[in-house]
Simulated assay, not measured.
Amino acid sequence: MHALLANQTALAMDQENVLGLGLAGLIALVLLAYAVLFIGALISILTSSHSGGMKLAWVVFAFVAPFLGSLLWFLVGRGDSLRRAGATRAV
């Protein structure tokens, strides 16, 4: 009886370790994706066709609100930058 209880306890501990490792892996993956998004946004901002002041504003916004700033850059700022670049080349 005691051996059965010990085996059940060991099995439960193994399942907790597997879940813990899975959760740690998921957290590491999310942090890596977050870092790639942030660094990608900074590189994209600095190489954009915006003026120096506008680049500075986007970089400050990206540092103050890293996830939101990076996300908004790719949703709004980058498109605006590409439209500006197209408009200046057409002239």
Rank of each mutant, 00 (worst) to 15 (best):
Q15Y: 12
A24M: 08
E16P: 00
V18N: 07
D80G: 08
I27R: 14
A28N: 07
D14S: 15
R78P: 00
F67T: 07
Y34G: 00
L72G: 05
S70C: 07
A33I: 04
Y34W: 05
T9G: 00
S48G: 10
G25H: 10
A35H: 02
G22S: 11
M13A: 15
S70T: 05
H50C: 08
L26Q: 08
T9L: 12
G77R: 05
A24V: 05
A57M: 11
G86R: 15
Y34V: 03
A87Q: 13
L21D: 09
L72Y: 04
L72T: 13
L42G: 12
A24K: 10
R83I: 15
V30K: 04
L75Y: 04
L31Q: 09
F61G: 11
F74W: 14
L82T: 09
L11C: 06
A24Y: 00
A65E: 06
G40I: 09
A57E: 06
R78G: 00
N7V: 10
G52S: 13
R83L: 15
Y34C: 00
N7W: 04
R84H: 13
M54D: 07
F67K: 02
F63V: 14
D80W: 07
A41L: 00
R78T: 00
K55Q: 10
S51V: 03
I27L: 14
W73Q: 03
A12V: 04
V59W: 06
S70D: 10
I43V: 11
F61Y: 11
L26I: 04
E16V: 13
F63D: 00
T47Q: 07
V18L: 10
M54S: 08
A35Q: 07
A35F: 04
F74Q: 11
S44T: 02
G25V: 01
G69C: 12
S44Q: 07
M13G: 07
V64A: 15
G25L: 08
S51R: 09
G22C: 03
V59Q: 07
G22E: 09
A12I: 02
S70Y: 14
A62F: 03
N7F: 03
L82C: 05
A12L: 13
T47D: 02
S70N: 08
N7L: 13
F38A: 02
N17T: 06
L46W: 11
